[in-house]
Design a protein around this nucleic acid. Sequence first.
RNA 1: GCCUUAGUAGCUCAGUCGGUUAGAGCGGCGGACUGUUAAUCCGUAGGUCGUAGGUUCGAGCCCUACCUGAGGCGCCA
Length: 482
Amino acid sequence: MFNRVEIADVLAGKYLNQEITVCGWVRAFRNNRFVALFDGSDFKTLQVVVDFENTDESVLKKISFHACIKASGKLVESQGAGQNYELLADSVEILGESNPEIYPMQPKQQSMEFLREKAHFRMRTQTFAAVFRIRHGVAFAIHKFFNDKGYFYHLSPSVAASDAEGAGEMFRVTTLDVNKPPRTESGEIDWSEDFFGRATNLTVSGQLEAEIGALSLGKVYTFGPTFRAENSNTTRHLAEFWMIEPEVAFFDIFDNMNLAEEFCKYLINYILQNFPDDIAFLDKRLQDEQNKLPQDQRRAMGLLDTLKFVVENDFERITYTEAVKILRDSKPFKKGKFEFEPSWGKDLQAEHERYLVEKHFQKPVIVRNYPKAIKAFYMRQNERDPDVPGETVAAMDVLFPGIGEVIGGSQREERLEKLRARIHEMHLPEEDLWWYLDLRRFGGAPHAGFGLGFERMVQFITGMGNIRDVIPFPRAPGSAEF
RNA sequence: GCCUUAGUAGCUCAGUCGGUUAGAGCGGCGGACUGUUAAUCCGUAGGUCGUAGGUUCGAGCCCUACCUGAGGCGCCA
């Protein structure tokens, strides 16, 4: 039994003038006397004062950067100015030494690229510890938000049979021998011989299965990993990422937008209230990083200000058609600054979204009613509007500064014949979607939902520039070391 | 997948026009100091300049290919 107490509780003042034991890792050892100790429970470190005159030289030598120690003694009010309490240690035990001559981590700023290669150690840094505490906080807040509103946590499978959504390239799941797979008479791989008796993949989205939940339990949400085998090399894509997909019966596109906005604000508020030290640190970190950039490349607002701004202001809501008009009337378009011409019928490019969010409105924007031709088959077709150049669907995207699309959603097509027609138009395999169509044949209901990229939200809240730095073990093209 | 860019000490970087023995800060190591807050001070050891070719009297620097990282675009969340 260690009977150790946690540093967060110690710093909260629970143990003043008591004999306690703490365990943790060394962040700094100053003057052969002062250990700054962290154990993960708090952003701040506990100052452990080592009685160096009565401590063995061999122990003192091993109190090195990120070594793990156990210290016992009396907790007192600190004589120094940097902290309220400190532990006067009368015994220090080395639990795990860390030879500084070969340990790659150093008590100094190290680059994100370097730390990414040391994924097994990077969580010991202040930045990553803060990011991953917040990641937990966001995950917890997601469940709390939906639970408190009467939603049910719904599990969509990670191994999926359907290729229907077409959300991206997929990872094949198979137990067949890749060197000599069974073949049909015509020479194709015989997937009926495979483990599941058919071809299977890692899921790209849990939405279609979530609709089953919504049309039974009313309000559900998924929260789990999804996989895309796209060769995407950007700061905001992962091959494995977590997605939250609420799906709600008797919801239209406007209910859906309201839910999305309330949800985003709730998550940010939760972190602001529960992780103020971590946010303050990340705010300063981002500021230091920004100061190294040339003036014109800096963010308009700091992290904390951005988060508060999002929470305190209504999201702007516009239609796709209005968005195109704004873009075509914009200065950058007229001056030929856009690489791609915004025109009705073409999808908005990253540069267009960035202009709308960061320049024109300077706040999160929800764009809805996109052209039918550029959106997925299951999105509900709108009535033809004479003021709009073409057919649209009840889709919506929530756009955030810096990271772009954080949410994509829609009201779903509940009308069987319209849905079947769309499936045929897009040459999708109707036979694979039999159960999805059944949901419209038997007890169908209007419903809507959206998908939120978990890591993108964590990226936004922490201000991290690369999405690979907000997931413990990022999966990306050519990268699965840990 | 496409475009751009980078690779020099453990880390972050400098290295002029192609010219002698490749530098700094931090970190490490040795010592001093001992109520420090990224402690401070003194000293010291670290490099096949990503890899393989090529041009040249001479290459860290120029050329070619490859590898790896980063950023942008596309795809999306």
